[in-house]
Design a protein around this nucleic acid. Structure first.
Lengths: 237, 237
DNA sequence: TCAAAAGTGTTATGATTACACCCATGG
DNA sequence: CCATGGGTGTAATCATAACACTTTTGA
């Protein structure tokens, strides 16, 4: 099925760029890789790919994420579209940016090396190609805002986690210290967590209790888009 | 400058669809027009156009808005991108959605008729082509959320407006009644408005005072993206 | 036994909500 | 003079923010 009106229209390239966030040792990180083709071969940049025929945008983003990380079912969300005329000097490329969150315990050093990929702390990024720096900063902003009213930060932790870990994650996302007591109060008030009988070994002498999500409740809330709203994250400071 | 890797990539059509909001007589409205070409010639839909070569996305959206309304410098913002494979049955068309806000006193009945365009209350839309209904609902959601922490609603009113008018606008956006006293308290607490010496005639016997923005302050806040945050719009109810 | 991190409650402040009457004017 | 919509204040409740000591245990 075709159509003259449509036929005559300009067709840009449509790319997908993925900002992949991970969290490790108290630091929020972004997965970058070295570009494989010219121009700018070897430059650091985001996971990227062009849209294929017959693929929806989300499918294309999942494909790009899978290629980069080896993982399926990554939490991801569309951020926005970058379409400045000269953002890629080779050709007109309009790019859809997705950001994704992956658990630190799911990626594999071998896969990373194979892809010429590496994790960089969000506060210490290398020079990036095109407008990728801007894409990362905007994604981080979205992550900060979103983490205030959705339990999104949890996608970055392992199945079982301690409250001090969860708090450090929030502190890494917001680059801000929170008051321990107030943080716990708010997080526990959501009724999303259950305390397990198990304590963490090795980090502190006393050991912190592990928590996990009440799985149905969590899914329910995420599905419904319900805001469990940590109204202000301005704990202390 | 060209490149084999790029050359071989798939090139979809890239369209822009604009959700144009207006406010009139207590009702939030959307500007729709009848489609001019097949398929679905004559069906109601959003203002639309394809991206042209050498145009940024914002420039293209401005062009589409100008063509539809005759106006420049409309407040507009990118919403998101719709890319389901079959959203347009003619061809693969990926569409970037913008929403725009126009003041009720700026549009012109003659232009509308010429374009086969008309305003529809947001709560009473006709059947729309493709996924345009979904685009409108998402834009409305964004407008609701955004109006809670940015003075965005003001783009929909005339230069001078009364507080009862402003409140009705918020009520139309949120489909909810607010308490008069609490609404005024919050709005005035932002220090964005100045009361003029002039009263509105004709609407009520007593007449309501006109207000206007303190222009520099407003621009400053909009520029800085500062949130004047009407923290909860749950006035009453 | 001590150092290091985990865990716990209360009070003060500020924001939000609920609520009812008087005012000005045109008809 | 009265009907209509405009304008105003206060008290109760709830959420947030500030703040310091005790507990556990491995070394």
């Amino acid at each position: 099925m075709s159509n003259l009106y449509y036929e005559s229209a300009y067709r840009p390239l449509l790319a997908l760029d993925c900002v992949i966030f991970g969290y490790e040792k108290g630091t929020l990180k972004v997965l970058l890789s070295r570009r494989k083709q010219d121009p700018y071969k070897g430059a650091w940049g985001l996971a990227t790919g062009f849209l294929h025929a017959g693929e929806s945008l989300d499918e294309a983003a999942s494909r790009v994420l899978k290629k980069q990380t080896g993982l399926d079912n990554i939490y991801m969300e569309q951020l926005s579209i970058f379409g400045e005329v000269d953002r890629d000097p080779t050709d007109r490329v309009v790019s859809i940016v997705y950001y994704a969150l992956v658990k630190a315990d799911l990626y594999d050093q071998a896969v990373l090396e194979d892809k010429q990929a590496a994790w960089f702390p969000i506060t210490d990024l290398p020079r990036l190609m095109f407008d990728h720096e801007d894409m990362i900063q905007k994604s981080w902003g979205k992550l900060r805002r979103k983490s205030r009213y959705q339990p999104i930060g949890f996608e970055l932790l392992a199945e079982k986690f301690t409250l001090p870990e969860l708090q450090s994650l929030y502190e890494a996302i917001h680059q801000k210290q929170f008051d321990k007591r107030n943080f716990r109060k708010k997080i526990l008030a959501t009724n999303l967590l259950i305390k397990l009988d198990e304590k963490q070994k090795g980090v502190s002498k006393k050991g912190a209790y592990y928590y996990t999500f009440i799985p149905d409740k969590y899914d329910e809330l995420v599905q419904a888009g319900f805001n469990f709203e940590l109204k202000s994250m301005a704990f202390g400071q």
